[in-house]
Design a binder for these strands. Structure first.
Lengths: 148, 148
DNA sequence: TAAAATTAAATTGTACACAATATAATTTGA
DNA sequence: TCAAATTATATTGTGTACAATTTAATTTTA
């Protein structure tokens, strides 16, 4: 059979599998906060950069309004963020942390370290992996821009 | 703010983002075959190993019956696989390629190479990444086993 | 400046993921 | 041997992803 089609020779499958595996580790930690991993990513953005438009969040997380709108509505229902139309430009919706959402940052502070401990991956491998991923993402983005 | 919570310091987010990015590249290629990326993964398993039970596919792709059952039904509706209860053990369902499903292997033969070309990632980086991912997955699995 | 183009979110529809539970068949063990 | 435990798949329900379309507001430009 074609070597290229063997599961072990795929590059994307291990990325996809590892992604789901690590998100699974986050799940245990995040269910204490009653949020999902994509919701947690939105909070990382808000904790770091403050109030953002839906578009700004989408650019940072590479997610579109079809994903974000319902997700943000769920965070609003939980009382973690507020959503309000920009008065200067009625097309735009500003997403802000509520007090509850802001306080959650303290509770989340230890999560990344605990998840990495749970993974059993050495610090050295984590550092290498992070560097590798940045390089690969960089190559993809550079190539994509060149295509235009 | 807590350095650990900055988006740029996350390990999981770039994995998750890269996974979606590359699957997006596959999408263009796979829509010619009228299948999704997870459906393509199931076909990789069947092309490589022949008829499999739902469980065997699930172990190889780390997916459960909640994901696989409906996915396999969709592949059945498309005429790509057949599903039939094992006569020796009525709990088991065997998933086999139809003739159409088998023929599709030829059409898929060039996909991995084309997708990697489209990504703009150098061969060297791809090889390094693949090795890195295998190592990291190995560490995770070894650690998980040790936990029991 | 009014129509055309663009932009930002929202909506619709399909397809995963996955936890939790259900169902049915097979194995185990008292 | 038959009730209890286990196993394999299916079902249910929630929450992403993402393409395609819609809606409404703003900018551009003829």
């Amino acid at each position: 059979m074609n070597e290229q089609l063997k599961l072990d020779n795929q590059v994307c499958f291990p990325i996809y599998a590892l992604s789901r595996e690590i998100i699974g580790l986050y799940r245990t930690e995040l269910e204490v906060l009653d949020i999902t991993y994509p919701q947690y990513l939105v909070l990382l953005v808000l904790w770091e950069d403050g109030t953002q438009t839906v578009n700004q969040i989408g650019e940072k997380l590479k997610l579109d309004s079809g994903t974000l709108t319902p997700l943000l509505k769920r965070l609003e229902v939980k009382g973690i963020v507020s959503r309000c139309r920009c008065s200067a430009d009625e097309r735009v919706v500003h997403i802000a942390l509520t007090e509850k959402g802001a306080v959650m940052e303290q509770m989340a502070a230890g999560i990344p370290e605990r998840v990495m401990k749970m993974s059993g991956i050495s610090q050295e491998s984590l550092d290498q992996l992070k560097e590798m991923l940045a390089s690969v993402m960089g190559q993809m983005c550079a190539f994509r821009k060149k295509e235009l």
